[in-house]
Each structure stands twice: as C-alpha cells, then as structure tokens.
Design a binder for these strands. Structure first.
Length: 629
DNA sequence: GTGGCGTCC
DNA sequence: CAGAGGGACGCCACT
C-alpha cells in the first residue's frame, strides 16, 4: 500500500477542516508558540499552574521509535497553545528547536506538584522518556476517569468521550493526517492544520476532565480506585511495556518448519479419507465434508444454526471416526503456527530486539487488563505442543525468568466475600481446596478422594466462580444432569454462605444495576433488568463473576504498583517486571539476586491486601517461561 | 466486517 | 420452551 502524496493531502485537509466546526473552541482561538517570547510566556504560565492538560504529537505510535513533532497545552478551557518542534512542512514563520524546548520544559514535566491531565498518559510517558524526561505529577488520565466511572459504557477514546460528554464530533487524526500502517505523517502536514487539531484535542481533554472529575468526587470508592490503583498503574505499565520480553526467534522458526511438515501430512491424510480436496482451515468446508458428504451425526449447532465442528464435537466424533481426529490435530497445530510461531518473531522490535506488547487499561468490564499486539496473555500452556512456544520466552544472558502466580485467588476472594466458615477454614489451614471440596460433596475422607472426584470438585469450584448451571456442569463432566445437580446441592449444603452470597449478589445487581469489587470498583449490568430471559441470565452470571474477577484484578494491580516502586528505587536494576497474565506476574531477574528477589516478590504479592484468608503465591525460576512455572 | 474457532486466566 | 460458563484477543474464511 502506498501513501498518497503529501501535497494532495494538505489541500484535502484544508477542505475538510472547513466543514468541521467546533462550537466550543472557535477556530484560531489558541496560541502558536513559534518564537522565544511566546514560549517564555507559556513557560511561566505552566510553571505557575497547579494543573494543566497536555498532549504529545508524534510521527508514530511505537513509543520506542516515535519522535515528538509537537506539544499542546491547555491551562484553562479555551486557553490553549500548540508548540510545533519538528514539522518538515511549515507554512508558518518558523519553529523552536526541540532540544532546547524540552530542556526548559523538563523541570515542569518532572515537578510532581504540577499536576498533569491527559488522555492515555501511558503513551506520553513513553515518548517523553525517549527525551530523558521522567514525567511526574501524573494525576488525571481522562481515559481512566471515564473507565472508572463506567467500565462498560463503550470506548474511552477521546473522540468517543468528546462525543459523549460534549455532544460534539471532534476533528480526528484521519481528517488531517495520513495514516499508513503504523506510520503517521503528521510532521509532513502544515503545522497550522496540526495545531488546529491538537489544540482542539487538548482543550477537549481539559474540559472532559472538568466534567468527569466532579462525578468521581461524588463517589469516594471510585475515587479510591482511580487514585490508588488506576493512576499509579499507568507508569508501571509503561515500564513493563518498554522493557519488553526476549523471544528466541530461531527456536520458533525451527518449530514453524516442523509444524509446516506435519500439517502437510495431516492435510494429505484428510484429503485421502474424504476422497476429495478441501480446506481444513475452513469451518464451512469441514462441516460440508463431515456432515454432508460423510453423513456424520450432528451433535451440536453453532449460534448461527450451522452444524458445529468445534473441539468438543470433533473429540466426540473422533471416538468412532478417523477424519475428525485428523482435523483436531490439524487445528491444534495450525493454531500454534499461524498465531504464535509464525507471528511472534515478526513482533520483535528492531531497536530493542525484544517484543513489546501493549497493555490496555480501559477495555474490560471487570477491571482486568488486556494485552494486544501481540497478546501475551494467551500464550499456550495446557498442552506439551503449546508449551514449546513458552520455552521461546527466554531471559537475557545472566538472567532468569521468575514467574509468580496467585494460587486460587478467585476462590479465596469468594471465601472472603461470602465469609463461609468451611471455605475460610480450608484456606486458613492451607488445604488442597479441590480435594477438600471433593471430600465434602462425595462424603468421603480427605485421603479417600480419588482423582476423578477431585477433577469433578475442581469443575464445581470453577463453575461456581462463573455462575454455571447444573446443565453446564453436567456437560463439562460428562455426567447426567441430575448427578451434576446433586454435586451442586451437596456443595451448597456444605458451604451455605456461598449460596447466600450468590443470591445476595444477584439481588444487589438487579436492585442497584451494578456490582462492586472489594475496592469499590463498579460494574454496571443494564441487562439484569432485560425482558429477554437469556440476556438477563447472562447478566446475572456476569454479576456473580465480576466481584471475584474484578477484586483479583484490583489485588494484582496493587501488587504491581508496589513491586514497580521497589524495582525503580534500586540503584542497579537487576529485576524487571516483564509480563502480567491476570493472576501471574513474570520477571526477568539477574542470577545473583534470584532468591532475595523471589522472597520480596512473594511478600509484596501476598501482602497486596489483607483478607480473612491468606493469599498464596506460587513462584519459580528458570531459563524460560515454561521451566519457570 | 462477521462468524467460527481456539488460546489464555 | 429454549438455552443453559465469567473475562479477553487473534487467526482464518467468507461476504
């Protein structure tokens, strides 16, 4: 794909801009900082300000390589300035030198008494860090204000927020810039057009803050989540992302070739068995081969009404037929190749030689983080074939991977929230929780529990966290529904407060329209009052799950904040936090300090919060992520 | 862009 | 009576 010519772009921009009318910030109602005097005036104003909003304009989205092209500031609504620094194209009289500008702004950025407002501040931290600036006074990220106020109200991008809170569709980067696959050509555009856009954006950021902040202040619990969890986490995530993780690209490439060979064999076998060629990667073609040509029984249908070919179904069919088994193996290996072994090496950053995911802090409804480009929160672990991918997540020379995960954190939270005495007791006494549950529901002694019973109990425990029904449990375990129902009855009989807690949560959700985590994070569930039974039931399950999933998220986020503070205060950095996978933190630790660091990591994670049950962290070290577990 | 599927916690 | 497991992201095929 080719980027359109710059000249053409600029004139197209001019046209579009005229049609975009901002009713709040009139055109040209901002200052261009182009000369020394204007800059000096604004420096003074920023220094005197107790709080201001700012935005960075860059020539890219990768914080390791993007360059600062300009800066915008808002010290009050409508009092806005744009400071171009590196525009190639200029239809203005000039621009100040980036180096000297940043030099003189540094003390303001690094003054923690001067509070900063911004949209998605994590990005700004990374960009400024490239210029030797350690941003402090990071007080108000409007994206997170919006997220804490309502995590399920949709996107928290600036354009959405402006639309929602100001009722106005702002100029977007698309209207003024050319964005061609990870490359922004902002600096090639007339800086007046950029100024117009960015001045508007920073003004909107400030106004959004002024609108959302009073709403947050009305809710002390949400304010606490914002101040003590989400805002301090921003720079932690910036550190984790910029550190990145080392990947053994050649090991993945070798594995890719092995997979390709095996996939070829499987494809040939499948075509032979079917008597015709078809695409094994196409659910539609597989469905035609199995159910139309092959006349195999249809065990389940997709939500769209088509006969399903998913893993459960194929595994069932594989008992009596060969082809489904071939397809199963093909799917499993094709997944590894297309999603992981082929793709991860492409994500290695040429500057650092490492992979840098992005953690998203305002995506999930429950308070968890999400990870993208690449997603490092779904790297295979369950099967041996998949674990080979994990083995390619390695430590640098002289370092080891240390992986620390919370053991049964959601069940512990359930024990705490319900205050069920039996469950509390099991955790306080450090019992194997699934074994204990098995003993209770099967009415046997702890040492009489067999593997099958423990497996069933484990399914019951997980099912409870997810609000599963006896139907779901029976399907999961492959036992009749009545038997699954018996397990659940006996469970609730032995742990009566759990049942009470669940009923209380459902009632709370339907009365108030939301549920909360232990820290007071709120999840709104509009569907709990839906007239559609399915939607209502789904919302009730989400209501059951959210306090546990969300509290776990709060707990690990607080641990990350304290761990990062500990890491940052070290003079010689021998420990880095490199990944978060919901209940697990992964570190790269110098060999010389593994034992001491592990102890400290465990202490900080287990001490993240005081519950009526102890938190337990399992921790291991190894040369790669697989052996560290 | 959507649907089906599969990976993780 | 149907549908009956919470939260994510990414790949491929297909439209």
């Amino acid at each position: 794909m080719k980027a359109p010519g710059i000249k053409k772009t600029v004139s197209a921009v001019a046209e579009k801009l005229e049609t975009t009318v901002n009713p709040i910030l009139p055109q040209d109602c901002y200052t261009d900082i182009l000369d020394e005097d204007t800059f000096a005036t604004w420096l003074k104003r920023l220094k005197a300000a107790s709080v201001f909003a700012f935005d960075t304009e860059t020539d890219g989205l990768d914080v390791l390589s993007a360059n600062l092209v300009g800066l915008s500031f808002a010290i009050a609504p409508g009092e806005v300035a744009y400071l171009p620094m590196a525009h190639d194209y200029l239809n203005l009289s000039g621009q100040l030198d980036r180096h000297s500008v940043l030099e003189r702004l540094k003390s303001i950025w690094e003054d923690e008494k001067i509070l900063k407002i911004g949209q998605n501040i994590k990005f700004k931290i990374g960009i400024l860090a490239r210029y030797g600036v350690a941003l402090r006074g990071i007080a108000y990220d409007t994206m997170l204000e919006s997220y804490v106020l309502n995590s399920v109200s949709g996107l928290h991008a600036i354009t959405n927020l402006v639309n929602r809170y100001q009722g106005y569709k702002p100029t977007t980067i698309k209207t003024i810039g050319v964005k061609a696959k990870h490359k922004l050509f902002l600096k090639k555009i007339a800086s007046s057009a950029v100024a117009r856009y960015t001045a508007e954006e920073v003004d909107m950021t400030l106004r959004l803050h002024l609108k959302m902040w009073p709403q947050l202040q009305k809710r002390p619990d949400l304010l606490r989540v914002f101040r003590e969890i989400e805002m301090p986490l921003v720079s932690v995530l910036s550190h984790v992302e910029r550190t990145g993780v080392l990947i053994d690209a050649s090991a993945l490439s070798v594995y890719s070739q092995e997979l390709a060979k095996r996939l070829d064999e499987l494809e040939m076998q499948a075509h032979d068995l079917a008597g015709e060629k078809f695409n094994l990667a196409s659910p539609k073609q597989v469905q035609a081969i199995l159910y139309e040509t092959g006349k195999l029984p249809v065990l389940k249908r997709t939500p769209g009404g088509m006969p399903s070919t998913n893993e459960d179904v194929l595994a069932e069919l594989a008992i009596d037929y060969i082809l489904p088994k071939i397809i199963l193996e093909f799917r499993c290996l094709a997944k590894l190749k297309t999603t992981y072994t082929d793709k991860l090496p492409l994500m290695i950053n040429p500057l650092s030689g490492r992979v840098h995911t992005s953690y998203y802090q305002a995506v999930t409804s429950t308070g968890r983080l999400s990870s993208r480009d690449p997603n490092l929160q779904n790297i295979p672990v369950r099967k041996a074939e998949g674990r080979r991918i994990r083995q390619a997540f390695i430590a640098a020379e002289g370092y080891r991977i240390v992986a620390a995960d919370y053991s049964q954190i959601e069940l512990r939270i359930m024990a705490h929230l319900s205050q069920d005495s039996e469950l509390l007791k099991a955790f306080v006494e450090g019992k194997d929780i699934h074994r204990t549950t098995a003993a209770e529901i099967f009415g046997v002694h702890l040492d009489e529990v067999d593997n099958e019973q423990r497996r069933s109990a484990k399914a019951v425990n997980f099912g409870l966290i997810y609000g599963m029904s006896s139907f779901g449990l029976s399907r999961q375990l492959g036992v009749p529904r009545c038997e699954a129902q018996r397990y659940m009855d006996r469970y609730f009989n032995r742990y009566p407060r759990i049942l009470e807690y669940m009923e209380r949560t459902r009632r709370h959700a339907s009365e108030k329209g939301y549920v909360t985590t232990l820290y007071g994070r709120r999840l709104y569930l509009p569907d709990v009052r839906s007239s559609n039974v399915l939607r209502r039931k789904a919302a009730e399950r989400a209501a059951i799950n959210a306090p546990m999933q969300g509290t776990a998220a709060d707990i690990i986020k607080r641990a990350m904040i304290r761990l990062d503070a500990w890491i940052q205060e070290q003079e010689t950095p021998l420990v880095c936090m490199i990944m978060q996978v919901h209940d697990e933190l992964v570190f790269e630790v110098h060999k010389s300090v593994i034992d001491a660091s592990s102890d400290h990591i465990r202490r900080l994670m287990e001490g993240s919060i005081e519950l009526t049950v102890p938190l337990k962290v399992d921790l291991g070290a190894g040369v790669n992520w697989d052996t560290a577990k």
